[in-house]
Simulated assay, not measured.
Amino acid sequence: MTALGVVFRPQFPPERLREVARAADEAGLEELWLWEDCFLESGIASAAAALAWTQRLRVGVGLLPVPLRNVALTAMEAATLHRMFPGRFVLGVGHGVQDWMAQVGARADSPMTLLREHLAALRALLRGERVTTDGRYVKLDGVALDWPPAEAPPVLAGASGPRSLRLSGEAADGTILDASVTPDGVRRARRLIDEGRREGGRTGHHTVVGYLHAATGPDAVARLKAELERWDDASTLELRAAGNADAIAEAVQRLADAGADTVVLQPTADEPDLEGFVRFIAEEVRPLVPQDASSGRGEVSGS
Rank of each mutant, 00 (worst) to 15 (best):
F39Y: 15
W147I: 10
D99I: 12
A75S: 03
G169W: 02
P65W: 07
D194W: 01
V6F: 03
R297Y: 14
M84G: 09
A150K: 15
A260E: 08
Y137D: 12
E227L: 04
E129V: 10
Y137C: 12
G185E: 07
D194I: 00
D109N: 14
V252I: 09
G196L: 10
R58I: 00
R198G: 11
P290T: 06
R69A: 03
A189R: 01
V93N: 01
A21T: 07
R223W: 11
R187C: 00
A282K: 01
A78E: 05
D184A: 15
A222E: 15
V186K: 00
L177F: 01
D232R: 15
G28M: 03
E227M: 07
D109Q: 15
S42T: 05
V59W: 02
R127H: 10
V264S: 05
E129R: 13
N244S: 14
D178R: 05
A260D: 06
R188V: 07
A159H: 07
A258Y: 11
V104M: 01
L63P: 00
D246K: 14
G302V: 14
R240H: 13
P290H: 03
I44E: 00
D134A: 15
R163N: 14
G5V: 04
E19F: 10
V155M: 05
L17H: 01
T182G: 04
V59P: 01
